[in-house]
Simulated scan of single mutants.
Amino acid sequence: MNLEATRRRLTEKQADTVDKLTRAAMDVLSREGFSGLTVRMVAAQAGVGTATAYTYFSSKEHLVAEMFWRRLAATEAPSGDETDSTERVLEVLRQIALLLADEPTLAGAVTAALLGTDPDVAHLRLRIGGEIRQRLIDALGADSDPETVETLEMIYAGALVRAGMGYASYAEMADLMRKSALRVLRG
């Protein structure tokens, strides 16, 4: 999969370098945690020069946010076979919550990265939020109402921040989001 980078369009060779860096970042993150992760360490792990790595990623937060964006973009939205829009929405929320459920180190890093102030992270937040919004709108179908979509986005964002803060696991948050979303969708 050749995803457009957050800072510019990529040639095939550049896309391969970005892929190497994001794969290496997962290895370094697993070993060092988010606080120990540096772009320099990721570059070394990937066999890429540090200056080259900084050409693509302005910070470790940018790199981690890109990892989440790529994971989200590579995950197809639920099929929509379910005829009930409520069930489709619940499946979208669950799928997004569980993207990181099996990788608590990555999940915590994503939460920290997405809350950062790096302009490249801000750009990715918009892309991520736009993708999630579109999935919710598609799931709601004819029932799509901007206020309902916004409320569902708030449920999702709040649940993931709470999970990132350690209040509950991502799997537990998926269940809590279901309860909250049902209250909104069924009135």
Rank of each mutant, 00 (worst) to 15 (best):
L3W: 13
V64F: 03
Q14L: 07
M67Y: 10
G108H: 11
S35C: 04
L90F: 01
L136V: 10
T111R: 07
G80T: 04
R8F: 13
T75H: 06
G158I: 11
G158A: 13
F57N: 05
E82D: 13
K179P: 00
D138R: 07
Q134Y: 09
V149A: 01
L90K: 00
R186V: 08
G47M: 13
P78F: 02
R71K: 15
V149W: 01
I137P: 10
D19F: 13
V89L: 05
D81E: 11
T55D: 06
Y167C: 12
A97R: 07
E150N: 09
V89G: 06
D102E: 13
A109R: 03
A142R: 05
G166F: 14
A107T: 07
L37I: 02
A15L: 06
G116F: 06
A97C: 11
S85H: 01
L160C: 07
P146T: 10
Y156P: 00
R8L: 11
M26C: 11
L29A: 08
A25P: 05
P119K: 14
R178H: 14
Y156F: 04
V161D: 03
W69F: 14
G108P: 07
E87L: 14
L126M: 14
T75I: 05
R162C: 15
A15H: 12
L136C: 03
L99N: 12
D118G: 03
T38S: 10
L160R: 08
V42Q: 04
L182A: 12
A157P: 12
L63Y: 05
A97G: 05
A159Y: 06
V39L: 06
V92S: 01
A15E: 08
V89R: 04
V18R: 00
L126K: 15
F34L: 08
R8N: 10
R135W: 06
D27T: 14
A5P: 03
L99E: 15
D118I: 07
S169K: 08
M1E: 13
L72R: 13
H62K: 10
G187W: 06
K20N: 11
T148W: 03
V28Q: 00
I128Y: 08
Y56A: 06
L185E: 03
A74F: 02
V149G: 02
L10S: 06
V149S: 04
L90Q: 02
L29Y: 05
E12C: 12
V89Y: 03
D16E: 13
A51Q: 09
T75F: 00
L93H: 07
L115Q: 13
S79H: 01
R9S: 14
G164M: 15
Y170T: 09
Y156C: 02
D143E: 14
Y170N: 10
E91V: 02
E66I: 01
L63D: 03
L185Y: 02
V28G: 02
A43H: 08
A53R: 10
R183V: 07
G130M: 15
A122H: 11
A168H: 15
S35A: 10
S79L: 00
D175P: 01
T38C: 00
D145T: 12
T22W: 04
L37T: 02
L10C: 07
W69Q: 14
